[in-house]
């Protein structure tokens, strides 16, 4: 049963990935991406990576996709249809991608032997929390801190980039005062 569901999910991921990059309507594209992300989260659930799956859904599917949809609605008409890519350009890109796929396939033939190792215990929430905050071996406190700084910087940067009009306006006032 689980096996069948897993294969269905994998198929969904592939199909919707292709639809994401080929759909003519940008909003639909975003929704297809959402489907891919949710299917990925479902596979994480099946692998018993519950925390990862939860993060995937809340942050990725919930956060990022909603953000993207907002920006789409800010910049597009809902009926807007994107023009299709130029044929030769699409061909060349496809060729490059296919070449890379072929190369990966060649590498993956070594991965056939990878089998499930016995003795898998689903990671407990407690272990994950401890690992994130420990600084010994298998400890991730440094990346954890770095990522927090990165997120802060990204947030401030995003505000600064997206709100230039406000800054300019203030500058103008300042200049007028000056004169």
């Amino acid at each position: 049963m689980e096996q069948i569901i897993t294969y269905i999910l994998l198929a969904l991921m592939l199909i919707f990935s292709v639809m994401t990059v080929t759909s003519g309507r940008i909003l639909r594209s975003a929704v297809y991406l959402l489907t891919v992300l949710v299917a990925t989260a479902a596979i994480y659930f099946i692998m018993q990576y519950q925390f990862l799956a939860a993060v995937q859904i809340t942050l990725y599917a919930g956060g990022i996709v909603v953000l993207i949809i907002f920006s789409i609605l800010l910049t597009h008409h809902i009926e807007h249809r994107m023009e299709n890519p130029v044929f030769w350009k699409a061909m060349i890109s496809a060729l490059a991608a296919l070449g890379a796929v072929a190369m990966i396939a060649w590498v993956l033939k070594d991965a056939q032997s990878i089998q499930n190792v016995a003795g898998f215990i689903p990671p407990k929430m407690e272990d994950i929390g401890m690992a994130l905050l420990s600084y010994g071996k298998q400890g991730y406190v440094l990346p954890f801190e770095v990522i927090s700084v990165l997120l802060l910087a990204a947030m401030i940067g995003a505000i600064a980039v997206a709100k230039p009009a406000l800054l300019q306006f203030k500058n103008k006032n300042f200049k007028q005062d000056d004169q």
Binding site: V21, S29, P85, S93, A96, A97, I104
Partner: peptide, 24 residues
């Protein structure tokens, strides 16, 4: 999925669509 993303990134003309491919 990765190389579908690459393909999308190379062919899409809309920047948001390119961002979607990158997310992929």
């Amino acid at each position: 999925m990765f190389f579908i993303g690459v393909y999308g990134f190379l062919t899409r003309k809309n920047i948001i669509a390119m961002l979607l491919s990158a997310e992929l």
